[in-house]
Design a protein around this nucleic acid. Sequence first.
DNA 1: GCGTGATGCAACGAAATCGTCACCCCCTCC
DNA 2: GGAGGGGGTGACGATTTCGTTGCATCACGC
Lengths: 229, 229
Amino acid sequence: MSTILIVDDEEDIRELIALNLHRAGFQSIEAPDGITAVKMARKSAPALIILDLMLPQMDGYAVFKELRNDTRTSELPVLMLTAKGKLDERITGLSLGADDYITKPFSPKELILRVKAILRRTEKGPSASVVEIGDFRLDKNNLKFYLSGDPVDLTATEFKLLLSLIESPGVARERSELLQKVWGYSDLIQTRTLDTHIKRLREKLGGNGSRIETVRGVGYRFVSTTHAS
Amino acid sequence: MSTILIVDDEEDIRELIALNLHRAGFQSIEAPDGITAVKMARKSAPALIILDLMLPQMDGYAVFKELRNDTRTSELPVLMLTAKGKLDERITGLSLGADDYITKPFSPKELILRVKAILRRTEKGPSASVVEIGDFRLDKNNLKFYLSGDPVDLTATEFKLLLSLIESPGVARERSELLQKVWGYSDLIQTRTLDTHIKRLREKLGGNGSRIETVRGVGYRFVSTTHAS
DNA sequence: GCGTGATGCAACGAAATCGTCACCCCCTCC
DNA sequence: GGAGGGGGTGACGATTTCGTTGCATCACGC
Protein backbone atom coordinates (compact mmCIF):
# COMPACT_ATOMS: atom_id res chain seq x y z
CA MET A 1 0.00 0.00 0.00
CA SER A 2 2.69 2.39 0.76
CA THR A 3 6.14 1.07 0.27
CA ILE A 4 8.23 -0.90 -2.14
CA LEU A 5 9.88 -4.14 -1.11
CA ILE A 6 13.35 -4.78 -2.51
CA VAL A 7 14.48 -8.40 -2.52
CA ASP A 8 18.12 -9.06 -3.35
CA ASP A 9 20.90 -10.88 -1.58
CA GLU A 10 23.55 -8.30 -2.48
CA GLU A 11 23.44 -5.37 -0.14
CA ASP A 12 25.06 -3.03 -2.66
CA ILE A 13 22.30 -3.63 -5.14
CA ARG A 14 19.61 -3.15 -2.52
CA GLU A 15 21.16 0.14 -1.43
CA LEU A 16 21.47 1.31 -4.98
CA ILE A 17 17.85 0.60 -5.70
CA ALA A 18 16.68 2.07 -2.40
CA LEU A 19 18.60 5.26 -3.05
CA ASN A 20 17.13 5.73 -6.47
CA LEU A 21 13.65 4.95 -5.30
CA HIS A 22 14.02 7.42 -2.50
CA ARG A 23 15.13 10.13 -4.87
CA ALA A 24 12.08 9.46 -6.94
CA GLY A 25 9.90 9.80 -3.88
CA PHE A 26 9.28 6.21 -2.88
CA GLN A 27 9.72 4.60 0.49
CA SER A 28 11.27 1.17 0.52
CA ILE A 29 12.01 -1.79 2.73
CA GLU A 30 14.54 -4.50 2.03
CA ALA A 31 14.85 -8.25 2.32
CA PRO A 32 18.12 -10.16 1.73
CA ASP A 33 16.56 -13.55 1.10
CA GLY A 34 13.37 -15.24 -0.02
CA ILE A 35 12.03 -16.30 3.33
CA THR A 36 12.38 -12.84 4.79
CA ALA A 37 10.85 -11.44 1.63
CA VAL A 38 7.69 -13.50 1.89
CA LYS A 39 7.30 -12.60 5.54
CA MET A 40 7.75 -8.88 4.91
CA ALA A 41 5.39 -8.95 1.96
CA ARG A 42 2.66 -10.43 4.12
CA LYS A 43 3.25 -8.09 7.00
CA SER A 44 3.97 -4.78 5.31
CA ALA A 45 1.73 -5.09 2.28
CA PRO A 46 4.02 -3.16 -0.06
CA ALA A 47 2.73 -1.51 -3.22
CA LEU A 48 5.28 -3.31 -5.35
CA ILE A 49 7.96 -5.95 -5.00
CA ILE A 50 11.27 -5.75 -6.82
CA LEU A 51 12.46 -9.33 -6.87
CA ASP A 52 15.85 -10.64 -7.87
CA LEU A 53 15.70 -14.12 -9.31
CA MET A 54 19.11 -15.15 -8.04
CA LEU A 55 18.69 -15.78 -4.36
CA PRO A 56 20.28 -18.20 -1.92
CA GLN A 57 18.13 -21.02 -0.62
CA MET A 58 14.71 -20.01 -1.85
CA ASP A 59 15.13 -18.61 -5.35
CA GLY A 60 13.05 -15.92 -7.01
CA TYR A 61 10.70 -18.33 -8.71
CA ALA A 62 9.89 -20.03 -5.43
CA VAL A 63 9.30 -16.66 -3.74
CA PHE A 64 7.06 -15.63 -6.58
CA LYS A 65 4.96 -18.78 -6.40
CA GLU A 66 4.70 -18.46 -2.67
CA LEU A 67 3.48 -14.89 -3.01
CA ARG A 68 0.88 -15.86 -5.57
CA ASN A 69 -0.40 -18.65 -3.40
CA ASP A 70 -1.26 -16.43 -0.46
CA THR A 71 -4.35 -14.27 -0.69
CA ARG A 72 -2.61 -11.49 1.19
CA THR A 73 0.04 -11.16 -1.48
CA SER A 74 -1.42 -12.78 -4.58
CA GLU A 75 -2.32 -9.50 -6.22
CA LEU A 76 0.89 -7.66 -5.53
CA PRO A 77 2.69 -6.46 -8.62
CA VAL A 78 6.17 -7.88 -9.04
CA LEU A 79 9.07 -6.42 -10.98
CA MET A 80 11.64 -9.10 -11.66
CA LEU A 81 15.39 -8.57 -11.76
CA THR A 82 17.12 -10.93 -14.13
CA ALA A 83 20.70 -11.44 -15.20
CA LYS A 84 21.45 -10.06 -18.62
CA GLY A 85 20.96 -12.32 -21.54
CA LYS A 86 19.40 -15.12 -19.63
CA LEU A 87 16.49 -15.16 -21.94
CA ASP A 88 14.88 -18.21 -20.47
CA GLU A 89 14.66 -16.36 -17.19
CA ARG A 90 12.73 -13.58 -18.79
CA ILE A 91 10.38 -15.91 -20.47
CA THR A 92 9.78 -17.91 -17.35
CA GLY A 93 9.24 -14.79 -15.33
CA LEU A 94 6.70 -13.22 -17.60
CA SER A 95 4.89 -16.46 -18.22
CA LEU A 96 4.58 -16.93 -14.49
CA GLY A 97 2.73 -13.65 -14.31
CA ALA A 98 5.32 -11.09 -13.28
CA ASP A 99 4.31 -7.58 -14.16
CA ASP A 100 7.59 -6.62 -15.73
CA TYR A 101 11.25 -7.51 -15.69
CA ILE A 102 14.49 -5.60 -15.96
CA THR A 103 17.97 -6.94 -16.67
CA LYS A 104 21.07 -6.41 -14.59
CA PRO A 105 22.93 -4.20 -14.89
CA PHE A 106 20.19 -1.63 -15.24
CA SER A 107 20.12 2.12 -15.38
CA PRO A 108 18.49 3.78 -12.39
CA LYS A 109 16.42 5.86 -14.75
CA GLU A 110 14.95 2.86 -16.43
CA LEU A 111 14.21 1.24 -13.11
CA ILE A 112 12.25 4.23 -11.91
CA LEU A 113 10.37 4.42 -15.17
CA ARG A 114 9.28 0.84 -14.92
CA VAL A 115 8.31 1.19 -11.29
CA LYS A 116 6.17 4.19 -12.09
CA ALA A 117 4.64 2.41 -15.03
CA ILE A 118 3.64 -0.57 -12.95
CA LEU A 119 2.22 1.53 -10.15
CA ARG A 120 0.28 3.61 -12.58
CA ARG A 121 -1.09 0.51 -14.21
CA THR A 122 -2.11 -1.21 -11.02
CA GLU A 123 -3.25 1.80 -9.08
CA LYS A 124 -6.77 1.17 -7.98
CA GLY A 125 -9.48 3.27 -9.46
CA PRO A 126 -10.98 5.53 -6.83
CA SER A 127 -13.18 3.37 -4.65
CA ALA A 128 -16.48 3.85 -6.38
CA SER A 129 -16.69 7.43 -5.25
CA VAL A 130 -18.79 8.51 -8.14
CA VAL A 131 -22.51 8.86 -7.78
CA GLU A 132 -24.28 8.64 -11.07
CA ILE A 133 -27.98 9.01 -11.77
CA GLY A 134 -29.16 9.62 -15.27
CA ASP A 135 -27.30 12.64 -16.65
CA PHE A 136 -26.03 13.53 -13.21
CA ARG A 137 -22.57 12.55 -12.18
CA LEU A 138 -21.04 13.54 -8.86
CA ASP A 139 -17.37 12.81 -8.35
CA LYS A 140 -16.75 12.79 -4.63
CA ASN A 141 -12.99 12.54 -5.06
CA ASN A 142 -12.62 15.74 -6.96
CA LEU A 143 -15.77 17.41 -5.79
CA LYS A 144 -16.79 17.79 -9.36
CA PHE A 145 -20.19 17.65 -10.88
CA TYR A 146 -21.03 16.80 -14.46
CA LEU A 147 -24.37 17.29 -16.14
CA SER A 148 -24.66 15.27 -19.31
CA GLY A 149 -20.90 15.04 -19.30
CA ASP A 150 -20.34 18.77 -19.08
CA PRO A 151 -18.66 20.03 -15.93
CA VAL A 152 -20.72 22.41 -13.82
CA ASP A 153 -19.05 24.53 -11.18
CA LEU A 154 -20.57 24.01 -7.78
CA THR A 155 -19.42 25.46 -4.50
CA ALA A 156 -18.66 23.08 -1.65
CA THR A 157 -22.01 23.80 -0.01
CA GLU A 158 -23.91 23.32 -3.23
CA PHE A 159 -22.09 20.07 -3.83
CA LYS A 160 -22.98 18.73 -0.42
CA LEU A 161 -26.58 19.78 -0.82
CA LEU A 162 -26.97 18.16 -4.21
CA LEU A 163 -25.24 15.05 -2.95
CA SER A 164 -27.60 14.82 0.00
CA LEU A 165 -30.58 15.08 -2.29
CA ILE A 166 -29.28 12.68 -4.89
CA GLU A 167 -28.34 10.06 -2.36
CA SER A 168 -31.96 9.22 -1.87
CA PRO A 169 -33.63 9.80 -5.22
CA GLY A 170 -37.38 10.04 -5.15
CA VAL A 171 -37.49 10.44 -1.39
CA ALA A 172 -38.26 13.77 0.17
CA ARG A 173 -35.67 15.07 2.59
CA GLU A 174 -36.95 17.28 5.36
CA ARG A 175 -35.55 20.75 5.79
CA SER A 176 -34.20 19.91 9.21
CA GLU A 177 -32.59 16.80 7.81
CA LEU A 178 -30.80 18.71 5.08
CA LEU A 179 -29.74 21.48 7.43
CA GLN A 180 -28.29 18.83 9.68
CA LYS A 181 -26.49 16.97 6.94
CA VAL A 182 -25.12 19.89 4.95
CA TRP A 183 -24.67 22.59 7.54
CA GLY A 184 -24.45 20.57 10.72
CA TYR A 185 -27.20 22.70 12.23
CA SER A 186 -29.24 21.06 14.92
CA ASP A 187 -32.98 21.12 14.45
CA LEU A 188 -35.18 23.93 15.67
CA ILE A 189 -33.08 26.43 13.80
CA GLN A 190 -35.08 28.49 11.42
CA THR A 191 -33.31 29.88 8.41
CA ARG A 192 -33.90 30.66 4.77
CA THR A 193 -30.41 29.65 3.82
CA LEU A 194 -31.58 26.33 2.52
CA ASP A 195 -34.08 27.98 0.20
CA THR A 196 -31.44 30.25 -1.20
CA HIS A 197 -29.04 27.43 -1.90
CA ILE A 198 -31.79 25.38 -3.51
CA LYS A 199 -32.44 28.30 -5.77
CA ARG A 200 -28.77 28.64 -6.69
CA LEU A 201 -28.57 24.93 -7.37
CA ARG A 202 -31.61 25.02 -9.61
CA GLU A 203 -30.09 27.90 -11.52
CA LYS A 204 -26.88 26.02 -12.14
CA LEU A 205 -28.79 22.95 -13.19
CA GLY A 206 -30.51 24.94 -15.89
CA GLY A 207 -33.39 23.05 -17.43
CA ASN A 208 -32.75 20.19 -15.06
CA GLY A 209 -33.46 22.44 -12.11
CA SER A 210 -36.95 21.03 -11.99
CA ARG A 211 -35.45 17.72 -10.92
CA ILE A 212 -35.29 19.25 -7.48
CA GLU A 213 -38.91 19.25 -6.42
CA THR A 214 -40.40 21.19 -3.56
CA VAL A 215 -42.40 19.13 -1.12
CA ARG A 216 -44.47 21.70 0.60
CA GLY A 217 -44.25 21.63 4.36
CA VAL A 218 -41.59 18.96 4.26
CA GLY A 219 -38.53 19.84 2.26
CA TYR A 220 -37.08 18.89 -1.10
CA ARG A 221 -36.76 15.84 -3.24
CA PHE A 222 -34.60 14.83 -6.16
CA VAL A 223 -36.39 12.92 -8.89
CA SER A 224 -34.58 10.84 -11.45
CA THR A 225 -37.08 11.46 -14.20
CA THR A 226 -39.09 14.59 -14.56
CA HIS A 227 -42.64 13.45 -14.60
CA ALA A 228 -45.25 14.70 -16.96
CA SER A 229 -48.82 15.66 -15.96
CA MET B 1 -38.05 12.96 11.42
CA SER B 2 -39.72 11.44 8.47
CA THR B 3 -43.30 10.73 7.70
CA ILE B 4 -44.62 7.24 7.35
CA LEU B 5 -47.76 6.34 5.44
CA ILE B 6 -49.93 3.64 6.98
CA VAL B 7 -52.28 1.85 4.63
CA ASP B 8 -54.87 -0.44 6.18
CA ASP B 9 -58.64 -0.66 5.98
CA GLU B 10 -59.06 -1.38 9.66
CA GLU B 11 -58.99 1.76 11.70
CA ASP B 12 -57.95 -0.06 14.86
CA ILE B 13 -54.84 -1.39 13.21
CA ARG B 14 -53.95 1.99 11.79
CA GLU B 15 -54.31 3.62 15.16
CA LEU B 16 -52.23 0.94 16.80
CA ILE B 17 -49.44 1.37 14.32
CA ALA B 18 -49.62 5.14 14.42
CA LEU B 19 -49.42 5.16 18.19
CA ASN B 20 -46.36 2.98 18.26
CA LEU B 21 -44.66 4.92 15.53
CA HIS B 22 -45.38 8.13 17.35
CA ARG B 23 -43.89 6.78 20.55
CA ALA B 24 -40.78 5.88 18.57
CA GLY B 25 -40.58 9.40 17.25
CA PHE B 26 -42.06 9.04 13.81
CA GLN B 27 -44.79 11.04 12.23
CA SER B 28 -47.44 9.17 10.33
CA ILE B 29 -50.32 9.69 8.00
CA GLU B 30 -53.03 7.17 7.26
CA ALA B 31 -54.97 5.88 4.31
CA PRO B 32 -57.93 3.50 4.60
CA ASP B 33 -57.85 2.26 1.03
CA GLY B 34 -55.60 1.84 -1.95
CA ILE B 35 -56.75 4.79 -3.98
CA THR B 36 -56.30 7.20 -1.11
CA ALA B 37 -52.96 5.57 -0.36
CA VAL B 38 -51.59 6.20 -3.83
CA LYS B 39 -52.77 9.80 -3.75
CA MET B 40 -51.24 10.45 -0.37
CA ALA B 41 -48.00 8.79 -1.31
CA ARG B 42 -47.67 11.10 -4.29
CA LYS B 43 -48.60 14.16 -2.39
CA SER B 44 -46.87 13.67 0.93
CA ALA B 45 -43.79 11.79 -0.18
CA PRO B 46 -43.46 9.69 2.93
CA ALA B 47 -40.17 8.09 3.85
CA LEU B 48 -41.80 4.69 4.11
CA ILE B 49 -45.11 3.03 3.38
CA ILE B 50 -46.57 0.36 5.60
CA LEU B 51 -48.94 -1.46 3.31
CA ASP B 52 -51.55 -4.04 4.21
CA LEU B 53 -52.14 -6.51 1.45
CA MET B 54 -55.80 -7.07 2.30
CA LEU B 55 -57.59 -3.99 1.07
CA PRO B 56 -61.05 -3.41 -0.37
CA GLN B 57 -61.28 -2.57 -4.09
CA MET B 58 -57.65 -1.98 -4.92
CA ASP B 59 -55.60 -4.59 -3.08
CA GLY B 60 -52.09 -4.26 -1.79
CA TYR B 61 -50.44 -5.70 -4.85
CA ALA B 62 -52.23 -3.25 -7.10
CA VAL B 63 -51.25 -0.37 -4.85
CA PHE B 64 -47.68 -1.53 -4.88
CA LYS B 65 -47.53 -1.76 -8.65
CA GLU B 66 -49.12 1.62 -8.97
CA LEU B 67 -46.54 3.13 -6.65
CA ARG B 68 -43.68 1.58 -8.56
CA ASN B 69 -45.02 2.87 -11.83
CA ASP B 70 -44.95 6.50 -10.79
CA THR B 71 -41.58 8.21 -10.62
CA ARG B 72 -42.68 10.21 -7.62
CA THR B 73 -43.16 7.06 -5.61
CA SER B 74 -41.18 4.40 -7.43
CA GLU B 75 -38.28 4.50 -5.04
CA LEU B 76 -40.23 4.57 -1.81
CA PRO B 77 -39.50 1.70 0.54
CA VAL B 78 -42.51 -0.45 1.33
CA LEU B 79 -43.07 -2.60 4.38
CA MET B 80 -45.78 -5.14 3.67
CA LEU B 81 -48.30 -6.39 6.17
CA THR B 82 -49.38 -9.94 5.48
CA ALA B 83 -51.73 -12.33 7.18
CA LYS B 84 -49.94 -14.90 9.23
CA GLY B 85 -49.01 -18.11 7.52
CA LYS B 86 -49.95 -16.95 4.09
CA LEU B 87 -46.56 -17.82 2.81
CA ASP B 88 -47.39 -17.20 -0.83
CA GLU B 89 -48.17 -13.62 0.09
CA ARG B 90 -44.73 -13.17 1.52
CA ILE B 91 -43.09 -14.65 -1.46
CA THR B 92 -45.10 -12.59 -3.86
CA GLY B 93 -44.49 -9.47 -1.86
CA LEU B 94 -40.74 -9.83 -1.67
CA SER B 95 -40.42 -10.94 -5.25
CA LEU B 96 -42.29 -7.84 -6.30
CA GLY B 97 -39.64 -5.78 -4.63
CA ALA B 98 -41.02 -4.90 -1.25
CA ASP B 99 -38.31 -3.97 1.21
CA ASP B 100 -39.58 -6.12 4.01
CA TYR B 101 -42.73 -7.76 5.33
CA ILE B 102 -44.22 -8.47 8.71
CA THR B 103 -47.03 -10.84 9.61
CA LYS B 104 -50.21 -10.02 11.46
CA PRO B 105 -50.55 -10.11 14.35
CA PHE B 106 -47.25 -8.45 15.03
CA SER B 107 -45.57 -7.09 18.11
CA PRO B 108 -45.16 -3.30 18.17
CA LYS B 109 -41.56 -3.75 19.11
CA GLU B 110 -40.80 -5.80 16.04
CA LEU B 111 -42.62 -3.34 13.84
CA ILE B 112 -40.52 -0.45 15.07
CA LEU B 113 -37.36 -2.44 14.64
CA ARG B 114 -38.15 -3.22 11.04
CA VAL B 115 -39.15 0.34 10.30
CA LYS B 116 -35.90 1.62 11.68
CA ALA B 117 -33.95 -1.01 9.82
CA ILE B 118 -35.50 -0.07 6.51
CA LEU B 119 -34.99 3.64 7.06
CA ARG B 120 -31.41 3.08 8.05
CA ARG B 121 -30.83 0.93 5.03
CA THR B 122 -32.38 3.31 2.55
CA GLU B 123 -31.03 6.49 4.04
CA LYS B 124 -27.43 5.48 3.86
CA GLY B 125 -26.27 5.82 0.34
CA PRO B 126 -24.89 2.67 -1.23
CA SER B 127 -21.38 4.09 -1.06
CA ALA B 128 -20.15 4.90 2.42
CA SER B 129 -17.24 6.85 0.92
CA VAL B 130 -15.06 7.21 3.95
CA VAL B 131 -11.30 7.10 3.63
CA GLU B 132 -9.62 6.09 6.83
CA ILE B 133 -5.92 5.80 7.54
CA GLY B 134 -4.67 5.69 11.08
CA ASP B 135 -6.05 8.69 12.92
CA PHE B 136 -7.14 10.31 9.70
CA ARG B 137 -10.71 10.02 8.55
CA LEU B 138 -12.04 11.73 5.46
CA ASP B 139 -15.77 11.64 4.88
CA LYS B 140 -16.34 12.30 1.23
CA ASN B 141 -20.09 12.54 1.65
CA ASN B 142 -20.02 15.42 4.03
CA LEU B 143 -16.62 16.77 3.10
CA LYS B 144 -15.61 16.46 6.67
CA PHE B 145 -12.27 15.57 8.11
CA TYR B 146 -11.60 14.05 11.49
CA LEU B 147 -8.24 13.78 13.18
CA SER B 148 -8.29 11.24 16.00
CA GLY B 149 -12.04 11.60 16.02
CA ASP B 150 -12.02 15.36 16.37
CA PRO B 151 -13.47 17.33 13.47
CA VAL B 152 -11.05 19.68 11.74
CA ASP B 153 -12.35 22.42 9.48
CA LEU B 154 -10.91 22.21 6.00
CA THR B 155 -11.79 24.31 3.01
CA ALA B 156 -12.86 22.52 -0.14
CA THR B 157 -9.43 22.97 -1.70
CA GLU B 158 -7.64 21.73 1.37
CA PHE B 159 -9.95 18.73 1.50
CA LYS B 160 -9.24 17.81 -2.10
CA LEU B 161 -5.52 18.24 -1.60
CA LEU B 162 -5.41 16.07 1.49
CA LEU B 163 -7.57 13.49 -0.21
CA SER B 164 -5.25 13.36 -3.17
CA LEU B 165 -2.29 12.81 -0.93
CA ILE B 166 -3.95 10.24 1.28
CA GLU B 167 -5.25 8.22 -1.63
CA SER B 168 -1.77 6.91 -2.24
CA PRO B 169 -0.08 6.77 1.13
CA GLY B 170 3.67 6.48 1.06
CA VAL B 171 3.91 7.38 -2.58
CA ALA B 172 5.11 10.79 -3.61
CA ARG B 173 2.75 12.76 -5.81
CA GLU B 174 4.37 15.12 -8.25
CA ARG B 175 3.54 18.78 -8.13
CA SER B 176 2.09 18.71 -11.60
CA GLU B 177 0.01 15.71 -10.66
CA LEU B 178 -1.48 17.45 -7.65
CA LEU B 179 -2.06 20.66 -9.52
CA GLN B 180 -3.88 18.66 -12.14
CA LYS B 181 -5.99 16.69 -9.68
CA VAL B 182 -6.90 19.42 -7.26
CA TRP B 183 -6.91 22.54 -9.39
CA GLY B 184 -7.42 21.09 -12.83
CA TYR B 185 -4.37 22.97 -14.02
CA SER B 186 -2.57 21.52 -16.97
CA ASP B 187 1.13 21.03 -16.59
CA LEU B 188 3.67 23.70 -17.43
CA ILE B 189 1.94 26.11 -15.11
CA GLN B 190 4.22 27.43 -12.44
CA THR B 191 2.67 28.55 -9.23
CA ARG B 192 3.37 28.67 -5.52
CA THR B 193 -0.25 28.02 -4.69
CA LEU B 194 0.43 24.38 -3.95
CA ASP B 195 3.14 25.28 -1.43
CA THR B 196 0.85 27.67 0.35
CA HIS B 197 -1.95 25.16 0.63
CA ILE B 198 0.41 22.49 1.87
CA LYS B 199 1.49 24.91 4.54
CA ARG B 200 -2.10 25.66 5.55
CA LEU B 201 -2.86 21.96 5.65
CA ARG B 202 0.12 21.25 7.85
CA GLU B 203 -0.96 24.00 10.19
CA LYS B 204 -4.42 22.55 10.56
CA LEU B 205 -3.00 19.11 11.09
CA GLY B 206 -1.03 20.39 14.05
CA GLY B 207 1.52 17.87 15.27
CA ASN B 208 0.50 15.53 12.49
CA GLY B 209 1.57 18.08 9.90
CA SER B 210 4.80 16.19 9.55
CA ARG B 211 2.82 13.35 7.99
CA ILE B 212 2.93 15.38 4.82
CA GLU B 213 6.51 15.02 3.74
CA THR B 214 8.31 17.12 1.18
CA VAL B 215 10.01 15.17 -1.57
CA ARG B 216 12.44 17.65 -2.95
CA GLY B 217 12.24 18.14 -6.67
CA VAL B 218 9.21 15.90 -6.90
CA GLY B 219 6.30 16.92 -4.77
CA TYR B 220 4.71 15.74 -1.56
CA ARG B 221 3.93 12.47 0.10
CA PHE B 222 1.60 11.36 2.85
CA VAL B 223 3.09 8.82 5.23
CA SER B 224 1.10 6.65 7.57
CA THR B 225 3.98 6.33 10.00
CA THR B 226 6.13 9.30 10.75
CA HIS B 227 9.57 8.98 9.32
CA ALA B 228 11.06 5.93 7.68
CA SER B 229 13.30 5.39 4.74
C1' DG C 1 31.66 25.49 3.08
C1' DC C 2 29.34 27.76 -1.22
C1' DG C 3 26.09 28.57 -4.58
C1' DT C 4 21.89 27.45 -6.71
C1' DG C 5 17.50 26.17 -6.94
C1' DA C 6 13.57 24.56 -4.44
C1' DT C 7 10.59 25.17 -0.55
C1' DG C 8 8.65 27.59 3.77
C1' DC C 9 6.29 31.39 5.22
C1' DA C 10 3.83 35.86 6.05
C1' DA C 11 1.06 39.38 4.22
C1' DC C 12 -2.09 41.32 1.03
C1' DG C 13 -5.74 42.30 -2.20
C1' DA C 14 -9.15 40.19 -5.10
C1' DA C 15 -12.72 37.19 -5.69
C1' DA C 16 -15.87 33.84 -4.41
C1' DT C 17 -19.04 32.36 -1.22
C1' DC C 18 -22.37 32.62 2.34
C1' DG C 19 -26.31 33.87 5.20
C1' DT C 20 -29.79 37.26 6.00
C1' DC C 21 -33.44 40.16 4.88
C1' DA C 22 -37.37 42.12 2.55
C1' DC C 23 -40.77 41.52 -0.59
C1' DC C 24 -43.69 38.96 -3.55
C1' DC C 25 -46.10 35.01 -5.15
C1' DC C 26 -48.44 30.76 -4.71
C1' DC C 27 -50.69 27.12 -2.46
C1' DT C 28 -54.05 25.50 0.82
C1' DC C 29 -57.66 25.51 3.74
C1' DC C 30 -61.67 27.84 5.24
C1' DG D 1 -62.27 34.73 -2.55
C1' DG D 2 -59.73 35.82 1.62
C1' DA D 3 -56.36 34.84 5.10
C1' DG D 4 -52.33 32.66 6.51
C1' DG D 5 -48.28 30.30 5.92
C1' DG D 6 -44.64 28.44 3.21
C1' DG D 7 -41.64 29.09 -0.55
C1' DG D 8 -39.16 31.88 -4.48
C1' DT D 9 -36.17 35.46 -5.45
C1' DG D 10 -33.09 39.42 -5.70
C1' DA D 11 -29.90 42.24 -3.36
C1' DC D 12 -26.46 43.25 -0.06
C1' DG D 13 -22.74 43.13 3.32
C1' DA D 14 -19.68 40.23 5.94
C1' DT D 15 -16.71 36.71 5.86
C1' DT D 16 -13.99 33.24 4.03
C1' DT D 17 -11.06 31.61 0.80
C1' DC D 18 -7.73 31.97 -2.73
C1' DG D 19 -3.58 32.92 -5.49
C1' DT D 20 0.30 35.92 -5.76
C1' DT D 21 4.35 38.18 -4.28
C1' DG D 22 8.57 38.93 -1.85
C1' DC D 23 11.73 37.38 1.16
C1' DA D 24 13.78 33.97 4.36
C1' DT D 25 15.37 29.35 4.77
C1' DC D 26 16.78 24.89 3.56
C1' DA D 27 18.67 20.89 0.92
C1' DC D 28 21.74 19.15 -2.23
C1' DG D 29 25.54 18.92 -5.57
C1' DC D 30 30.08 20.68 -6.22
